[in-house]
Amino acid sequence: MANRAAAALVLREGDREELARLTRSSSVRAGLAQRARIVLLAADGETNVAIAERVGVSRPTVISWRHRYGAKGIAGLEDEARPGRPREVDYSKVVSTTLEPPPRKYGVTHWSSRLLGRHLGVSNGTIAAIWRQAGVQPWQAETFKFSTDPELVAKVTDVVGLYLAPPENAIVLCVDEKSQIQALDRTAPMLPMQPGLPQRRTHDYVRHGTTTLFAALEIATGQVTAAVKPRHRHQEFLAFLKQVARAYPDQQLHLVMDNYAAHKRVEIRDWLAANPRVQVHFTATSGSWLNLVEVWFGIIERQAIHRGTFRSVKDLNAKIRAFVDGWNDRAHPFVWTKTADEILKKANRQNTSSTGH
């Protein structure tokens, strides 16, 4: 004789609303929400086979949760306490394992809470809680670069000394170029920002060429002398140095710049020798972060270039010049705060940790 379909499950008073809430809640465990859905479907008269197919469980599982609800109500849907002593989690083992690369068999570069939980036999929620307490974040990574320049100490001391105690009656300028700035135009007009909506733009774009921005930042005032040129060879750099010299006639100039090859060409050295009022202070190799004009390049990138649309290189150059003019109207001093000793001490720590000594 064929098995008869189970009768519709009778819910206790007020339980339907609570069961429905459990199925919609994003804060309850997935297992509890699934069990609540099984009970609701059983109350609606669905067969055990149909419920199993809809929920993605076995028929015996559906029968089990029907019986558990029938015996204890919603409380019966909770996990039962496991026999034996509660599992003790070794805090130090979780942290020490987190700090080591996962075994090769997993094929991953870093732990996730679920993978480490499975590996150690504890819940991923416990792993996440220990990570928060220990302040470890395996999913995050940062980059660093240390200088191998043999003159690191001398160069850092020289440049930082200029920032913290500039020579009297002299101008300190941070000089560099931002090359390969792309004139990108979107394939459709921008949709302007509206209340409740950010500015929107197409993800694709049309390239119209590139330009190079040369800039000299006066740290005492924040004023910028700038030029846009199609290339960034030593010829363009020399022309820009002459422009800077004209902008500050009859004044002693101290220029901070990096070790880019174009900055050290014989033509540049000859011009500097013929203009002794202009002195150059080179940053250390891999030490361009010492050059404050890099901070200003970040500002123009965020405020004028990254979200801009440019129909041509000419348009891009015009908008860069407009930003420089606007910047100089509201410029502010660039203040350096760290001493050379503080910087070198941090550099030594990074070198030590990277070599394991």
Rank of each mutant, 00 (worst) to 15 (best):
A36K: 03
N3K: 12
S312H: 12
P101H: 05
E142W: 13
R87C: 08
R21L: 12
H67K: 14
T126R: 12
Q182P: 09
V313L: 05
F310W: 02
Q140C: 13
V175C: 14
L272V: 13
A20P: 03
L173C: 06
L191R: 14
L162F: 01
R4P: 06
Y69N: 13
Q303S: 12
E80Q: 15
T47Y: 04
T148W: 00
Q180L: 10
R4Y: 08
L120V: 09
E142P: 00
R85H: 13
V244C: 10
F237Y: 11
F237I: 03
E100H: 08
A261M: 04
K345Q: 12
Y69T: 13
A33T: 05
E13S: 11
R68T: 11
K346D: 15
P60C: 08
Q199I: 04
L173M: 06
L241W: 01
G287R: 02
E168D: 15
T47K: 06
C174V: 03
S147G: 07
D15T: 00
S112P: 04
W139N: 06
R307N: 14
P195Q: 14
V57Y: 06
G308N: 10
N317M: 02
V206K: 12
T212P: 02
H67C: 07
L197P: 01
R35L: 08
A322T: 11
R85C: 07
A226K: 01
V266I: 13
S112W: 03
R37T: 03
L255G: 01
R269V: 10
V28I: 08
P195V: 14
